[in-house]
Nucleic acid binder design. Structure first.
Lengths: 219, 219
DNA sequence: TCTTGAAATAACCAAATAGTTATTTATGAT
DNA sequence: ATCATAAATAACTATTTGGTTATTTCAAGA
């Protein structure tokens, strides 16, 4: 039997499979995604996916891990600890929003992973470490702001982070049903800008002391 | 051929299929759900599902519609328009949170529907009507509060609603990955209570005038 | 009581799907 | 050069799955 000529590049092959899987899983969820579609899109024999990743779910796990880890790396690169508290917070809100916008797969993938009760990342040491640092950065920022008398005391960094990310995540993940529920386009450029501004305002009003808010209103 | 004895009850049969479908779709998503599982759980011949609903996706659409409509009905029954603005807002935040907690399928079903770009409810007149009233109630509440000098002027009711629901929805939909990300249990009774309080605070700080906030701090 | 249409049962099917077996071939180390 | 190993190709399969065909039975109205 004459086989097609081979071009070998294991690293590229793995990357192509991961990239195709990310798109397919993001688009259809774990249950709806098709291994054949992934292979076709990756321009790879399906067998190679089993060779490098084992099975469909293991591939899914690797996709989730990669996506989360890219997100945290980007956030860490912001170096918000080098800016004054309010600017740092604004920057973080804007970054988070922008990242969601530019990486729509992140959102549907996280939703899929939650549908499966996070079982694919439950034991990832790497992710746990990345995320511990992430919470720590917010804790430090809140403390810095409180010491400066700008932020309220003893705010829970986890609650703030959830509200901060949720203001963007929830808007974007539910924008399809949202447009029906709220009877309005939510993804026009103006609507996006308005949401970022509103969410920034929400977080600032939540975190800043009332005195600080008065000051900023400039009355 | 001797057939099993029949007990006929078309209404009950439809309801049993819907209830079983709600559980299965909520648990596995549209792509992961299995028609056979739904039939078995409903204790109904699979053929009946096709008889009453046409096909898998049409059944999914009916489930989504029912779930949304139940939610809005419950919210409307609150009659927040009969209470003073701050109490009304607190009641709405608490109700929304409680409803999500008691109806966890709602959350995963909405996520599923969004994964499919809301195509199953896009043309539902009934839902659009329900939701228009829902936004209108918030608009009226905000106006009432502003007139009383308690709430800030010209707040966008849609933005407020998204933030209000998102504070609960986002927390709950992502609580599985959240526990890993934040390294903390998020679904203990205490954690739940803390989240409701935090979200109530977030919304109040967002909506109330700064003067009103100062007053409530009682300084 | 008879008729008829809808409700329910039972068995079946073609296509899709995750995963496998078998084979070939490139390449780096010896 | 050759050999061992991993990379890649090709073809196949057992099962699952959404949906259908064929048949039976209940129950309400004439």
């Amino acid at each position: 039997m004459a086989f097609e000529k081979q071009i070998r590049d294991p690293e590229q092959t793995k990357l192509r499979i991961l990239a195709a899987a990310k798109v397919e899983f993001a688009q259809k969820g774990l249950g709806g995604a098709r291994v054949d579609v992934i292979a076709t899109r990756a321009k790879v024999q399906k067998r190679m996916m089993y060779h490098y990743f084992g099975n469909k779910e293991a591939l899914f796990a690797r996709v989730i891990e990669a996506v989360y880890s890219d997100f945290r790396d980007a956030e860490a690169a912001l170096e918000i600890e080098k800016q004054e508290p309010i600017a740092a917070l604004q920057k973080l809100v804007a970054f988070t929003w922008q990242y969601y916008l530019e990486n729509p797969e992140l959102i549907t993938l996280i939703n899929s992973e939650n549908l499966h009760k996070a079982k694919h990342i439950k034991n990832s040491q790497a992710l746990q470490k990345l995320n511990r640092r992430f919470v720590e950065r917010m804790r430090a920022l809140l403390e810095r702001g409180a010491t400066a008398g700008i932020f309220r005391n003893s705010l829970d960094p986890v609650q703030v982070l959830i509200t901060l990310s949720g203001g963007g995540f929830h808007y974007l993940t539910n924008h399809h049903t949202g447009e029906i529920v709220y009877g309005r386009k939510l993804m026009t450029r103006q609507a996006q800008a308005a949401r970022l501004q509103f969410n920034t305002e929400t977080v600032l009003r939540l975190v800043c002391t009332t005195e600080q808010l008065l000051k900023m209103e400039g009355t």
